[in-house]
Amino acid sequence: MPTRCTPWTVSELLAHVRVVIAWLPGMLAAPAPTRAEVSAVEYYRPDSRFAPNTNAARIAMAQDHAAEQLSGAALAKDFNVTWQQVDRLCQAEPEGRVVRTRYGDPMFLSEFLVTRVVEVAVHGLDLADALGREPWLTSKAADVVQDLLLGGPDGAALEKLGWGQLRFLHKATGREPITSEEALDVDRLDIRWLTLG
């Protein structure tokens, strides 16, 4: 089935989420940088990581991974095995652990994991929509993404916009259009727009 993340199908989008989680074992096995220099917000800066050739490679990688699976059930099983392995590895790491991303960013593991929550949460919305299901986004994941976009817990901004949390996440990540009037309100509230591939 198609998704709003053209040209990915549902299986290819799930494969993408699996791929972005699967970077972690290699990152954790590598030597830790001496200090973190990039936050989760700075990770989403508009540079070569979102260039057309990088996006094309990201799309192809997910398509290739989906094509390697024998069925949708095999892809789902692979996803479950991957996130459970990554969860175990991350739980074993000390507080303050620094990792280097595939783009060379030295980040606290906790900050990099925020970026993975963004991937899982936002693409979870895409998958639910493509499948015609109610979003299964947890409140904790929604809070992590909201706090990243608002610079911390700020339910007042959503009240001023008149949006619920789910609608805010849809609009702030480009899943739902924003009117020119809403854009002015967003600017006044200093909401962060992340560069997303």
Rank of each mutant, 00 (worst) to 15 (best):
A36L: 06
E37C: 01
E37L: 13
V38T: 15
S39L: 11
S39A: 07
A40M: 13
V41L: 14
V41F: 12
E42S: 08
Y43L: 03
Y43R: 05
R45S: 13
S48N: 05
R49H: 05
F50E: 05
F50K: 09
A57G: 09
R58E: 09
I59F: 00
A60Y: 01
Q63E: 10
D64A: 12
H65M: 08
H65K: 10
H65E: 13
H65D: 15
A66C: 07
A66M: 08
A67S: 13
E68V: 02
E68A: 15
Q69P: 02
L70G: 09
G72A: 13
A74P: 07
L75A: 07
A76N: 12
D78P: 05
D78S: 15
F79M: 08
V81T: 10
T82P: 01
W83F: 13
Q84V: 00
Q84N: 14
V86A: 07
R88E: 11
C90Q: 11
Q91P: 00
E93D: 11
P94N: 12
V98N: 13
R100S: 12
R102C: 06
R102A: 09
Y103P: 05
G104E: 02
F108P: 11
L109G: 04
L113I: 05
T115C: 02
T115G: 08
V117E: 04
V118K: 01
E119V: 00
V120N: 02
V122K: 12
H123A: 05
H123S: 03
G124M: 09
L127F: 00
L127T: 13
A128S: 15
D129E: 14
A130K: 13
A130T: 09
L131V: 05
E134V: 14
P135I: 14
W136K: 13
T138R: 06
S139F: 06
K140I: 08
A141K: 02
D143Y: 00
D143A: 07
V144M: 07
V144A: 10
V144N: 07
V145L: 09
L150G: 09
G152V: 08
P153E: 15
P153Y: 10
D154L: 04
G155L: 12
A157I: 02
L158P: 02
K160P: 03
K160R: 15
G162T: 00
W163P: 12
Q165P: 09
F168P: 06
F168S: 04
L169Q: 04
H170E: 15
K171Q: 14
K171V: 10
T173I: 02
T173E: 01
T173Q: 02
E176T: 02
P177A: 05
S180W: 00
E182V: 01
